[in-house]
Amino acid sequence: MGRDDYTDMGGTEEAFLTTHWSIVEGLASADEGSSRALIESLLDHYWKPVYCYLRRKGHTNEEAKDLTQGFFHEVVLERHLVEKADPEKGRFRSFLLMALNRYLANVRKRDERQRRTPRGKLVPLHMVEPPELSQMAAQANPDDCFNYAWVSSLLERVLEEVERDCHREGKAVHWHLFYDRVLAPIMDRTDALSLKEICTKYGIEDEPKASNMIVTVKRRFQRLLREHLRKSVMSDDLLADELEEIKRFFPKIAQENG
């Protein structure tokens, strides 16, 4: 069975072991060293949506970074956030947002600004370039803003992996084709190059071959997206629900109705 025949039907063991809910459950019993690794993984996946949400709530860049940092730190150190998590009760994303709001309320109550920035930062966020959402996404309400940032973060991670895989497997041209024909028209709002133009640009024999190459990358993108999404839900059964939920993030533009 070649690499391209790989299937994840029924879920992969690896994905099952690393659902984000599993991380939370693991945190309850982990020692400090493992906690740190687990929480860094969470931070990596969720800091941008949390940061964007905080910015939309009116916090400055520095405040938002501090609060983001402090929030993730407390999820580890003050286990009560973790203990209250109930995978049966919903999506990890919603749990995190709920926990964040509880944290913000606590911070406001305590009003102890210094405690917001914990010692020994997990990841020095001040070194990291904060994401800049599009004007339209940034004007959305904080919840929508969080959701857009979450989808952006997910797509960014998945597409980076697709690109990396393509390069590693000697399929760099496949990736370029996919980029020019599928991604660029969406991201730059331009017309897609025709298959004929693509063939000329990359010296590919015929259009069906170019088309197949694009489909190969598209399938890889689809498989990896499912794998990544699978990590945020507890079971394969919930994956379809999760996809539907994500689609609801996007309201329909309605000016067309005449």
């Binding site: 800049e132 599009s134 339209m136 980029y179 996007f250």
Partner: peptide, 15 residues
């Protein structure tokens, strides 16, 4: 390779 960061996309582009 990607010229534009995904974070800067409008919601309809993300969709």
């Amino acid at each position: 390779m990607r010229k534009k960061p995904i974070f800067s996309l409008d919601p309809d582009q993300l969709e």
